[in-house]
Design a binder for these strands. Structure first.
Lengths: 164, 164
DNA sequence: TCCAGATGAGTTGTCCCACAAACTATATTC
DNA sequence: GAATATAGTTTGTGGGACAACTCATCTGGA
């Protein structure tokens, strides 16, 4: 059993790759004309929900190179989805803010993306899905030294902590 | 609570991105001179453990374009880690097989990668880690229509299925 | 049997993207 | 107020992804 055991979790990287590639493949077509597809979506989503003070912070949050971020934002601006807001307190900085069009667009897209995500996790039952999302969130937050903020979706937590 | 709830799992894509980017960042430096770093590692690992009959099957398994696979394999061959084995039964096909050097190399690297993975999941306790790996495996296997083969590591399964 | 289409693999060419380096403008520190 | 650091942009370049094409071989039917 030792050889199996050694191999049992050896595909972690592959599992991750499969999931990400499926995520990409299933979300991208939903985004239509959105500039830069998934990147654009993540930026838009972070701008709306994330409240990053500067373009650099936004880039760091998404692990996007800051020189790349420039033209990603450029294209979102051209599409009328976000704006660069000058900061009077630090005139180097630009805060990226959403436009009404951007807000409406994101709301629409989030719905579709959410459905696609659910269908990706179709191999799990509802409780398992919640647990997976929760664990993934913890891992990601841990990696970024973010407190995994208390969350309404704590079913998974109970599942995993209240055991003999 | 509805607005929170709607947002609660909305960062799924971001969580995934964070994890993958951390995985990449922490594994890549461990691979040293291995050609094509993570791609090379995944290929080598699949060649050894996966038993794919052809180069095309290997490519499909890893979601790598087959024209790209050609030069990835080329470089692994140059490094003496794998070989293209002609198949007498189908002379178009080439089966990629590992060399002794490749086998030793992979064994060494797998150890390091495994440690890096564990440290990535450092935010979780042992049971949570097992559960996460297990759920991820199910999701990935589900996405590929593979039976998530009965696995020695079933602790997570118990945690998630035997509940009131 | 032989042709048509399918499949495995490799080659070539092109385009896009990531990354480095350099530059401007502003802020901070000593 | 000079030196250094930071926000953002521009430009140039190399590499990788993908499409289109070629070649060899296999397979299934007329």
């Amino acid at each position: 059993m030792t050889p199996q055991e050694g191999r049992a979790d050896g595909d972690f990287g592959w599992h991750l790759g499969v999931l990400l590639s499926a995520y990409h493949g299933s979300v991208t077509p939903l985004l239509g004309e959105l500039p830069h597809a998934m990147r654009g979506y993540q930026i838009l989503s972070t701008v709306v929900h994330g409240d990053q003070p500067t373009q650099a912070a936004l880039a760091a949050h998404l692990s996007i190179d800051r020189t790349v971020m420039t033209y990603l934002i450029d294209d979102l601006v051209k599409a009328g989805l976000v704006e660069r807001q000058l900061n009077p307190a630090d005139r180097r900085a630009r805060k990226i803010v959403v436009t009404p069009l951007g807000e409406r667009t994101l709301a629409e897209l989030e719905q579709r993306v959410r459905e696609a995500e659910e269908s990706l996790l179709g191999g799990l039952d509802e409780r398992q899905r919640a647990a997976f999302r929760d664990l993934l969130r913890r891992v990601a937050c841990g990696l970024r030294d973010i407190e995994p903020q208390a969350d309404p979706c704590v079913a998974a937590e109970h599942v995993l902590t209240e055991l003999p």
